[in-house]
Design a protein around this nucleic acid. Structure first.
Lengths: 334, 334
DNA sequence: CTGTTAGCGCATTCAG
DNA sequence: CTGAATGCGCTAACAG
């Protein structure tokens, strides 16, 4: 392998035309007779000619490449996001650089700079760990940017967010409407923005249903199975009359499930439980978890689509997108 | 954002030196006084200069980019592989284009061609679906290639394979050594190369242990939970005396688990089961699955490392790598 | 419709 | 140690 690359010049010589004519043939933009185009094309094919996109990029100032920055592709959440983003990009003829940050802000900065040097036409940045002004600074030189799961004030960037508030409302209302009255919220870490947004939806639903003061029924916890177990146990002891839990995420919900069963509550009859995310585990536990499904592939697809729209000039209208979770009813809440 | 890019020329002018001197400063290759270098560098930084890797690529004929072709990033197997590959590449200063083929050979061809046009310095190709000669043809123009999970005769490509035969032997021997005599092999699809290699290891272990003719105890099946369930049920009916199953993969093993429990066999006491792959589900079922762990991250890392070695010229020695599975003992076989 | 001229931004000669 | 000329492979703008 690795013979000398055949260039546009070689093709031009072989076809007895100018380089420009070859260029016109491969880019197929009128301005050329059908006849010569076909002839040039067939010769090019025969010679195994592969137009160099880097030379083209240098000449046109557009590379046809995009950056996708995620904390960790091995995390199923971002793997699905990446999948959606990649599909959307590929459909428009773009290729994407996949970059892991490993949650490291320094590396995120490095990756962003490398993407700049590669002259990508745009970047989708997932869950940035950078501080507000650092992030703003890092993005100023970027051509086009869409932020996923992160909000940045005024900056002229696109944004795609999960509609956590809607999800919180959806789950809570469902519990309320299926005959539950005292719905506790196992809220995850206080620092979590999405947790706070979910709490907002929870509150709205509770107040609207007139179910008393919801504040007392919000209990923060570590967002793991064990954290959920501990919190639920605590909650059930403090308020034995609780008849439903809305949980920060599926891990917490599985923990709550465990605790409830340990304390002899039957699910979903005596106690209903709803999670958030719809991770694979949710369908596998017994009873299977009712949860708010977050459409991850869709999230990636929409973010990339938004980026492409913005690259194509529509930077004003297309600014912000909210992707809505969907309630998946399984066995832990009917 | 998106002001006019500052070029090497701008920096040169601002620093009152030639472009060449700037080039020497940023590439830091002796030939320049420490003083001017530092001065140029600081000016460059101040101006927010980002050397264009595409211009550099055009000049040097090396792009510092690599291709990673996988069927599907959302599949946890390839997500882990991608993670390993990306880390290895990043550690050497390379960036990687992530390409999904969706198991579609046509798209695989398209992706490979696009990578050529991008002048990547090399490609790691996972689980190619292309036919032998098509694949060979598609790779002839590629600069450097490592095949993962696919073998291609003479072609001058690197190869990383899972040592399936070793895994088959490992699992079978473990069953034999822990007091089981009649080990059935739920073999997956006859067309699977890895299945055939695992069967080879199984046979070797069985014959060496003098456990009768193993051929009759190899039963092919669809590689799903349901496929495993059906096959195991069939096997248990035909040979009630079977006391262990080695399974093509974890899905089949979970199916076998189900069937065995349905037929009233206690696991692992009356019947031991070993799977292959160590997918996340394996640890979650009850009883938890004993299985051959395939080091996916490591697979990706090694493949990328091999590619980098080959790019750096070592195309003779570094040719082929076998990555070994590891037995993870959980509850379905002790 | 086709060819010519002139860069894109950088690195690689070679002189000084 | 520094600078000037040249080319990487392609496209844009203009002529013909």
């Amino acid at each position: 392998m690795n013979r000398n690359r055949v260039t546009i010049k070689d093709v031009a010589r072989a076809a007895g035309v100018s380089r420009q004519t070859v260029s016109r043939a491969i880019n197929d933009r009128g301005e050329i007779s059908e006849e010569t185009r076909d002839r040039v094309l067939s010769i090019a094919k025969e010679m195994g000619y592969r137009p160099s996109s880097i030379a083209r990029g240098l000449a046109t100032q557009r590379t046809g490449t995009l950056g996708l920055v995620v904390p960790d592709v091995a995390n199923p959440f971002f793997a699905d996001v990446a999948q959606g983003a990649e599909h959307a990009a590929y459909a428009e003829g773009y290729s994407v650089f996949l970059c892991n940050t490993n949650e490291d802000p320094q590396r995120e900065l490095a990756v962003l700079q490398s993407l700049e040097e590669k002259r990508v036409d745009g970047v989708v940045l997932c869950s940035s760990r950078l501080e507000e002004n650092e992030l703003r600074e890092a993005l100023t030189h970027q051509t086009a940017v869409v932020l996923l799961n992160r909000w940045l004030g005024d900056s002229n960037v696109g944004t795609v967010l999960i509609d956590d508030e809607y999800g919180g409302r959806l789950a809570t209302e469902h519990l309320l409407q299926t005959g539950h009255h005292m719905v506790g919220f196992l809220a995850g870490p206080p620092a979590s923005r999405s947790g706070r947004r979910r709490a907002k939806g929870y509150r709205a639903a509770m107040i609207r249903a007139g179910s008393g003061d919801p504040e007392a029924w919000i209990l923060h916890c570590i967002p793991t199975v064990e954290g959920g177990r501990i919190a639920a146990r605590q909650f059930l002891t403090a308020y034995p009359q609780v008849d439903a839990f809305f949980c920060y995420n599926d891990l917490v919900a599985v923990g709550a499930l465990k605790a409830s069963l340990e304390l002899g509550r039957s699910i979903p009859d005596e106690l209903a439980i709803i999670g958030f995310d719809d991770i694979p585990l949710a369908a596998l536990v017994t009873p299977a978890l009712t949860t708010c499904h977050v459409p991850r592939y869709e999230l990636g697809r929409q973010a990339m689509q938004l980026l492409l729209d913005r690259i194509d000039g529509c930077t004003d209208m297309c600014r912000e997108l909210l992707v809505q979770p969907e309630l998946i009813i399984r066995d832990s809440a009917l």
